[in-house]
Design a protein around this nucleic acid. Sequence first.
DNA 1: TGTAATGTTTACCAACCGGTCAAATTATCA
DNA 2: TGATAATTTGACCGGTTGGTAAACATTACA
Lengths: 213, 213
Amino acid sequence: MALPRAARTQRRTRIQEEKEEQILEAALEVFSAHGFRGATIDQIAEKAGMSKPNLLYYFRTKEAMHRALIDRVLDTWLDPLREFNAEGNPVAEIRSYIRRKLEMARDFPRESRLFANEILQGAPHIEDELKGPLKQLVDEKAEVIRAWAKAGKIAKCDPYHLIFAVWSTTQHYADFDVQVRAVLGQENAGDGRFEDAARFLERLFVDGLQVRE
Amino acid sequence: MALPRAARTQRRTRIQEEKEEQILEAALEVFSAHGFRGATIDQIAEKAGMSKPNLLYYFRTKEAMHRALIDRVLDTWLDPLREFNAEGNPVAEIRSYIRRKLEMARDFPRESRLFANEILQGAPHIEDELKGPLKQLVDEKAEVIRAWAKAGKIAKCDPYHLIFAVWSTTQHYADFDVQVRAVLGQENAGDGRFEDAARFLERLFVDGLQVRE
DNA sequence: TGTAATGTTTACCAACCGGTCAAATTATCA
DNA sequence: TGATAATTTGACCGGTTGGTAAACATTACA
């Protein structure tokens, strides 16, 4: 008899590897576009090019599929923050953090929307990740920023809200893409808006808007 | 025979006024928390304290209800940007725009999430509003900002991305509230985070992070 | 007060959705 | 090759969901 994935302890076959990959790719597409509840297994199955029972052979429930996806994507998503380096030049570090986050918004908008959907609706499936690993990482980096501020290397400011500001301004270009496009008009159809955003944000975070003599 | 709302042309009765109010309040609660597809008519009906068919007597479809809600809320939501004043002091105008948007995030988080849900999932119901009234308003205010920059009253910067930055940083505190709370920890349980955010953001937008002699 | 318009409820329906089952098909490997 | 395990499928199920029909209740107003 065939055993569903969760019950297997042996090494995975080539087919398992491939199919799970296809499924998670399709699941990312659908979950990120419609949220957990708005997504249907049929939709995902169709995108993955297989029947619904076949899909459910690899992931026994919709929740299991969502969880596997979250687990797979969360690590990558936090990479830019992990690279944040205490030893580097503070202003340069913040600039490159902004740049990396913006690149992720450009290159992985579905991943961004996956989390945005989840958090927006109260993070029912990832509360633990937020309060655990995420908080821990942010606490750590916030301490770095606090030290920089204390040493007079950057302006005194609340490090948590600084991190929130970087997150929100950069992820905005993934999560609210349709609005950004609508406002900018179709003239800016290409990826130019990301370069413009990078220029603007680096300047904003470093110099602010006030003119000085 | 009873006619559903859309077919009526006469003035509305007291009962209509009251019930539609109750429904839209409940609809705001549910749509903002679960998105359009995730929300159910039963949920809204229960929150509004009436039966489902009764609710459907006032709004014939879920879509009609959603649309009425969007129409009602959009105007209020854009008020802070409308108040943006070309004649005022540029830096002061930007500061108070940030402050007002942050107050809206604090006082009307459901409204913020309603739009966030909608835009995040591709704005299927409000595309016209984005490309029409919203774009028009933003174009207008962007021109004001551009003029300020040209006159040397604020730093030269892309006005559209400036507006995006204000939107994203402020709305973040409504849309991603659970994440903000999770990261800050329960010590900051009250509304203190909004004051901290206001302090940080005003400073960020005006001065930036770089220290100067 | 009578009656017509308005408002409310109960019962219901068809489509959809997450998930199961058993049978059929295909891959693996001794 | 053959047997065994892994994979795939079509048919199906119970619960939910958006929405309807029609009877019943209430309100407005002449």
